[in-house]
Each structure stands twice: as structure tokens, then as C-alpha cells.
Amino acid sequence: MKKTKSVLLSAPYLAWMVVFTLVPLGVVAYYALTDPATGVFTLGNLRNLGMYLPVLWNSIAYSLVSAFICLLLGYPVAYYIAHCRQTAQKFLYMLVMLPMCMSFLLRTLAWVGLLQDTGIINTMLAKIGLPRLRLIRTPAAVVLGMVYNYLPYMILPLYATLMKIDRRLIEAAEDLGCTPVQTFCKVVFPLSMPGILSGMTMVFVPAVSTFYISQKLGGTDTVLIGDVIERQFKQGNNPNLGAALSLVLMLLVFVCTGIMNRFGGGEEEVVV
């Protein structure tokens, strides 16, 4: 009897989520399909999307590159933490999480200070007699910003799966004559696949939709889809076009996470 009653507790939640997640997406679709001036039905906004294909491609390329770099950098770190003693593990885990709790805007601004033409790195280079480099407003700076900001999102899920791998499997592989490299390729790496995929998704999604990183660290040739959307709402005042672009971005993320989930066997976990 208690069960049937407590089921009712979920009703307000379902109503809330429908009103504040599903309905807003419907409103986005409504704006995407109406004319900004007259408000009548039109496919004009969708037709204009073709113009933004290069920008969309840019966003995908930058965030994929960033996700792979995060994987390359994050894997050894996660592996190292997972093989530390208990106390050290907890402390290192905290050190990975800590930057995520601090303002990402300010941390990105600090990179501007580091990379500027007259910034900290260039001043140091000049002091030891090396030529100044053009660091900021380059594609590399945008990728650096993404890797820097989202690396913890890669390390944490990787750590969670690596920690769960049964040590006896590794010992067994070694006993059966595997070299350390073979053990890694044949045992550890395949078993850590769920962590890799969820890490890739967790880096890719915020990276593909960012606008702050590209605005602060990028130049005119590194405009991303997030920048264009932000401008439509906050500067360009064409929310209808912005809505159409948001739909595209949502679809892109939906397809990408769908592919990742399929490879990962659909197993999702909350990490942290």
C-alpha cells in the first residue's frame, strides 16, 4: 500500500521536468521555425544554416582533438592515481576535482595573462633572449583552453573504471607470459573502455558548445558554434536563427553521445 502511495511523489517531478526541459525544447523548435520579424511559419532560418557549416565543422574538429589530447594526457594520470595507496588516492582525487570548483572564467582569464603577446610566457622568453611567440588568438590556444578546462572530466571517469579492474586479471596475464605492454593492450585498455567513452563524452559535449574559451583565447578564424549562438541572443538579436543553431547543436550532441553509448554497451555511470 505504501508503494502505490509513494509513487505519487514522482508526479510533481515528472511535471517539473516536462515543463522545464521538454517544453523549452519545443519553444526552441517554435522559434527556429518562425520568422523573426513577422512570427509566421518559415523554413528560412533552417535554410540559413548552410552558412554556418564551416563553423560547425570547426567546433567538431576542435573538440574532438581536445578530447583525444585529454585522453592521452589523462590516461597516465588516472592510471597513476588508481595505483597509489588509499590515502594518496583520495588526496590526488581531490586535487583533480578542486579546479572544477573554481571559476572557470577566471582560470581562463589567467591563461590570457599567460599567453598574451606581452604576457608572462613571452616576457620570460624575452628575458632569456628568445624571440616572442604568437600564442594567443591561435587555434592551438583554443585547444589548450579546452584541454585545460575539461581534463578533469576525463581523469575522473577513467580513474573510476581503472580502480575497479580486478588486480588478479593483470596478475593472471603476467603469469601467462604477457609483457607489460601486452597486459596493457589486451587486459587493462579493453577493460577501461567504459571510462574512456564516458570521459570522451564528458569532454566533447562542453567543448563543442563553449563560447567563452574561443572568445578569450581564439581569434577571428576560430569562431565556434557556441559563439554564433551567443551572438544571436546577446548581440545580433536574431533569436530565431539562434534557436535553429541550438537545435543543430543539440542534434549533434545527441548523435555523438548515442554513438558513444552504443560502443560502451549503454552503461552509464555518475562519476565524482
Partner: peptide, 11 residues
């Protein structure tokens, strides 16, 4: 799973 910008824009 939705990017923050989509959540923000839609709300």
C-alpha cells in the same frame, strides 16, 4: 546530456 548553452537558451 544537453550542452549548457542549449539548456540556457531553451529556458
Amino acid at each position: 546530456t544537453n550542452p549548457d548553452i542549449v539548456t540556457g537558451v531553451s529556458l
